[in-house]
Design a protein around this nucleic acid. Structure first.
Lengths: 209, 209
DNA sequence: TGTACATCAGTGAACGCGCGTTCACTGATGTAC
DNA sequence: TGTACATCAGTGAACGCGCGTTCACTGATGTAC
């Protein structure tokens, strides 16, 4: 049989998750630095003081949201980069994957884009740290590719971070094209993102010329 | 003789500028969406109500800051892109120019990076609009280059926006390396930014292969 | 140049409101025997 | 299984505070004649 939490802990986790969800919703329209603790508890339907049972502050909640938004993304990033097929297929699949992720988790993506350079230091740092990890992971995947022969570690990391930044940029573009009936705009994002990736991929191929 | 403003208008402009300066200072540590009107007037030393003589709201002030931060940058961007010399020289000069600009106007750069995806819609839109203009201007400069022969307008614009995003990315990296004694970190940013630009430039050269 | 009136940038009091945080509490859940 | 006590997630009242906005005002600057 599987391990079950006590009733108390299960309820506590449920409330905690409700706070995170409510905060994420409120953050579609504002930055973390202006999010109020009372706003969040009001949205959940608990007393303001209940907040303190779960987080020290809204900044603390923000750090938890970073983990929720990016923590589970590492396997996805890895497989995206290491996928096989010809370059254009790989790019197309990566762009589709990003589009799908943005559709499935728009609020998480918006939160990361917003707070990456936002006004709350601990959250900014948590995001930078996760993105740096992504960079290193992509670097290691790239290193496995035969094309990486002759590349220095530094150059591989540079390329890896360029890919990571590009993915985020693309995700942010898809975000602006989420409304119903914006198919044309979405198709436009696919085209632009694809060509950007292709240009980078061409640069990569001729890097050692 | 030069045209002079009346005493009244001159004083008004001075106060307006003081409000903008104070706001920009306060925005180093927080987002626009949490900036209070009273904070700003307190920092300047005027009554809270004086604020309304100049701006409808802090969002309105934010839009004015966008104009101040990016409005005067168009000539600089143009000349950067259209500069001559061999590719590596051009890249080196562009990176230095960005570094210099970030050193001279760190708060403006931080403001743009922060609010580009921030929580205040009119400000976000003002920034997107300015960046779109930069993109078109760079596109037109690129079109003049002999290397642009055979390129579609679409592809040129794609490349132009890639450059613009890359400049902003680079500026943001320099921002994190501004403290005294971070020379090594700054040199690291120069190296990374240069190689990113170089890779894009290689991709550009082989785009039509 | 001088006078009489208009303009308007900045003032200061007042308002109602929501904020973050403290505190002692309650009552369901958990634990020891 | 039943009982007696401990834990602790969530409550609700209270606090002092700073917020955005309104309003009638003042007095220096501008303008018409």
């Amino acid at each position: 049989m599987s391990h079950t939490l006590g009733i108390r802990q299960a309820q506590k986790q449920k409330t905690r998750q409700a706070l995170l969800d409510a905060a994420l919703g409120l953050l579609e329209e504002q930055s973390l630095s202006s999010l109020g603790l009372r706003e969040v508890t009001r949205a959940v339907g608990v007393a303001p003081t209940a907040f303190y049972r779960h987080f020290r502050s809204t900044a603390d909640l923000g750090v938890a949201l970073v983990e929720e938004a990016l923590g589970s993304l590492h396997p996805m990033i890895r497989t995206t980069v290491s996928a096989d097929g010809d370059p254009d297929e790989r790019i197309a699949r990566a762009v589709e994957l990003i589009a799908g992720h943005v559709s499935a988790h728009p609020a998480h993506v918006r939160f990361i884009a917003r707070e990456r350079h936002g006004g709350v230091q601990p959250v900014r740092e948590a995001i930078q740290q996760q993105l740096a990890r992504f960079g290193e992971e992509v670097q290691h995947e790239l290193a496995k590719d035969p094309m990486a022969e002759g590349w220095s570690d530094d150059d591989l990391l540079m390329l890896a971070n360029l890919y990571v930044d590009q993915m985020l940029m693309t995700a942010s573009l898809f975000l602006d094209a989420l409304e119903e009936g914006a198919e044309e705009q979405r198709a436009q994002v696919v085209r632009i993102a694809t060509r950007r990736m292709r240009l980078i991929s061409i640069g990569r191929r001729h890097w050692l010329d």
